[in-house]
Design a protein around this nucleic acid. Structure first.
Length: 465
RNA sequence: GGCGGUGUAGCCAAGUGGUAAGGCCGAGGUCUGCAAAACCUCUAUUCGGCGGUUCGAAUCCGCCCGCCGCCUCCA
C-alpha cells in the first residue's frame, strides 16, 4: 500500500485515486526565462519517479505540466535581448524539454503554455467574480483572501497582517490587504497584453495553474506537486482560486519536494555553486549519474549535492551497467537454487516496501545493491540457474522502470573495428603461447584507445573505459 | 519577529523507543601469468553538545550550538 505525505494534512496517508485505475496529477513546470538548474531538476526527477512508481503500482497516469511563458522575468529578459516574447519562451521551453529528455524523464501527457489558455483563465476570474472573491483596483483584478475562509489551510499562513520583521512588498499599495494577490494585471506600457472584459492586461502567475489543472484534470483531482517554495503563496493561492470558484476540493494530495543544497550551501550564482544540467555535462558527468544522484535521497529531505558524490554515482552507474551486461551474458547451470530465488523475491519486496513508504528511494536503492551482490556472488561461482537468471533480469528491469538510470546507458551492442578485433585475437594467441610480454603490450595499447580487456573463464571480454 | 526543516563514519545518506541499512572512497585477502571485474573481510562502542524521561534513545522531552527554508519572484 503506497503511503504519501500530504502537505495539506501534514500526515502520511494511504494513497488511492479518485478513479480506481487512473491517477490525475499536476506538477508545476518552469518559468521559461533561462536554463533550468539542477535544483529545479531535482523536483522534476521526483515528479518523474512518482509517475513511474504509480505506473509500477499498476495505475494509468494523466499528468499535466504548465509552462509559465508570461511573467515579469520572461518579459524583461526577452526585451533585454530584443527577441519577441513568444520566440524567447519557445526557445527556453525547447531547452527545458531537451534537458528533461536528457535526464530520462517521461514527458507528461499534457505540457501546456500559459499563453494558450487565456480564455480559460478569464472564465475562472468570472466565476470568482460571481462568487464575490474579486475586486478591481487601478485596472487590475485582485483576489480578496478575506472572502475565502479556508485561506491558509495548506501553508498554515495566518490571515493576520504583516508581522514585524517580515519583508513587505512596497509595490502593492493598491491592494485592500497586503496578502491579496493579483488575478489579472493591467497592462503597462510596452508589455504584451490581451483584450479582455477586464481591460488590457495579462494573467497573474497563480491563475494559470488553477485554470489549466481544472481544464485537463477536472475540478477535483488526485495529486499536485512542486517544490516546497511553492507551498506559499503559489499553492495556497491556487486553492483559493479553484475552491473559491467551484466550492469543491481542488486537490486531494499535495506533495512537495525539498530543495537541494550544493556543498552544504544554497545554490547561488555569486557563490559559484550554481549548476545547470549543461554545466555538469560539460564537466564530463553523465546524465545517468546526475539522475541517480538527484533520486538518491528521499524527496522530502534536503539533498546535499557535491561533486565528490557525483563522481561516486558515476562509478555506481558503471557498476550497475556492467552488472546488467554480465547477467545478460551469463551461462546458466541446471541445478535449482532456492536460496537465491528467495533473495530475489526478498529484494523485490524490500524495494516495493521502501517506495511504498513515501517513496524512500535511499532504502529502495539499498535493496537494489543487496540484490546485485547476491547475483554477483552466484555469477562469481558460476552457479546461476536459468530460472534465477530470468527472474533477476526481470527484476532488474522493474527496478529500472522506476529509476530509469540504466535506460540512459547504452546497452553497448556496438562492435569494434577489424584491427582491434584482430589484436584481441592476437593477444589471446600470445597468451596461450605464454608470450605475456606481447599479450600485455596489446592490452596496454588497447587501453590507451579506451578499451579494457577482461579475461574470464569463458574467454576474453572487452568494454569501454 | 512568526512558522518550519535539519545536524548519523572521509563524502552522500537510511533508520522516529530495542541495541547503527546502503552507496562512493580507503585497507587487506581470494581469483588471475599479471591485470580487470567480481567475491570475502575490515573501516562510527556511536548518531552536533549538555541534561532529562525510560528496563532500554540516533529515535521522546528541555536547553544550547550549527546549517537550510517559507513569510517577497523562486523547484
Amino acid at each position: 500500500m503506497l503511503r504519501l505525505y500530504n502537505t495539506l494534512s501534514k500526515r502520511l496517508e494511504p494513497f488511492t485515486p479518485l478513479q480506481a485505475d487512473q491517477v490525475s496529477m499536476y506538477a508545476c513546470g518552469p518559468t521559461v526565462h533561462d536554463y533550468a538548474h539542477i535544483g529545479n531538476f531535482r523536483t522534476f526527477m521526483f515528479v518523474d519517479l512518482l509517475r513511474r512508481y504509480l505506473k509500477f503500482k499498476g495505475y494509468k497516469i494523466r499528468h499535466v505540466m504548465n509552462i509559465t511563458d508570461i511573467d515579469d522575468k520572461t518579459i524583461r529578459k526577452s526585451q533585454e535581448q530584443g527577441i519577441p516574447l513568444k520566440e524567447y519562451t519557445e526557445l527556453y521551453t525547447r531547452y527545458f524539454l531537451e534537458d528533461l529528455t536528457t535526464l530520462g524523464a517521461e514527458l507528461p501527457e499534457h505540457i501546456v503554455p500559459a499563453t494558450e489558455n487565456i480564455p480559460e483563465m478569464i472564465d475562472l476570474i468570472k466565476r470568482l467574480e460571481a462568487n464575490g472573491h474579486t475586486y478591481v483596483s487601478e485596472g487590475s483584478v485582485y483576489y480578496r483572501i478575506a472572502s475565502f475562509a479556508e485561506y491558509g489551510k495548506l501553508s498554515g499562513a495566518k490571515l493576520a497582517g504583516n508581522v514585524a520583521g517580515a519583508r513587505v512588498d512596497v509595490d502593492e499599495y493598491d491592494k485592500e490587504d497586503a496578502r491579496d494577490f493579483v488575478l489579472w494585471k493591467a497592462a503597462k506600457e510596452g508589455e504584451p497584453f490581451w483584450e479582455t472584459p477586464y481591460g488590457r492586461g495579462r494573467p497573474g502567475w497563480h491563475l494559470e495553474c488553477s485554470a489549466m489543472a481544472m481544464k485537463y484534470l477536472g475540478e477535483s483531482f488526485d495529486i499536485h506537486c512542486g517544490g516546497v517554495d511553492l507551498i506559499f503563496p503559489h499553492h495556497e493561492n491556487e486553492i483559493a482560486q479553484s475552491e473559491g470558484a467551484t466550492g469543491r476540493q481542488f486537490v486531494r494530495f499535495w506533495l512537495h519536494c525539498e530543495h537541494l543544497l550544493v556543498e552544504g550551501q544554497k545554490m547561488s550564482k555569486s557563490l559559484g555553486n550554481y549548476y545547470t544540467l549543461r554545466d555538469l555535462l560539460k564537466l564530463g558527468f553523465s546524465a545517468s549519474a546526475i539522475r541517480l544522484l538527484l533520486l538518491s535521497v528521499p524527496y522530502r529531505k534536503q539533498l546535499n549535492f557535491t561533486l565528490e558524490t557525483l563522481r561516486g554515482m558515476e562509478t555506481r552507474v558503471k557498476k550497475l551497467s556492467d552488472f546488467r551486461r554480465r547477467l545478460k551474458g551469463a551461462p546458466t547451470v541446471d541445478s535449482a537454487d532456492t536460496e537465491l530465488l528467495l533473495a530475489i523475491a526478498e529484494a523485490r519486496k524490500a524495494f516495493e516496501d521502501a517506495l511504498d513508504e513515501d517513496l524512500n528511494t535511499s532504502a529502495a536503492l539499498a535493496a537494489v545493491a543487496d540484490f546485485e551482490t547476491s547475483i554477483n556472488r552466484a555469477l562469481a561461482q558460476g552457479s546461476l540457474s536459468l530460472e534465477c537468471k530470468e527472474r533477476a533480469l526481470r527484476l532488474l528491469s522493474e527496478f529500472d522502470a522506476v529509476f530509469g538510470v540504466l535506460a540512459l546507458q547504452s546497452d553497448e551492442t556496438e562492435s569494434l573495428d577489424e584491427e582491434i578485433l584482430r589484436l584481441i585475437e592476437e593477444r589471446t594467441a600470445a597468451k596461450a603461447a605464454k608470450n605475456y610480454a606481447r599479450a600485455d603490450e596489446i592490452r596496454r595499447y588497447l587501453f590507451e584507445r579506451g578499451i579494457i580487456l577482461e579475461d574470464t573463464k569463458t574467454g576474453v571480454r572487452w568494454r569501454r573505459v
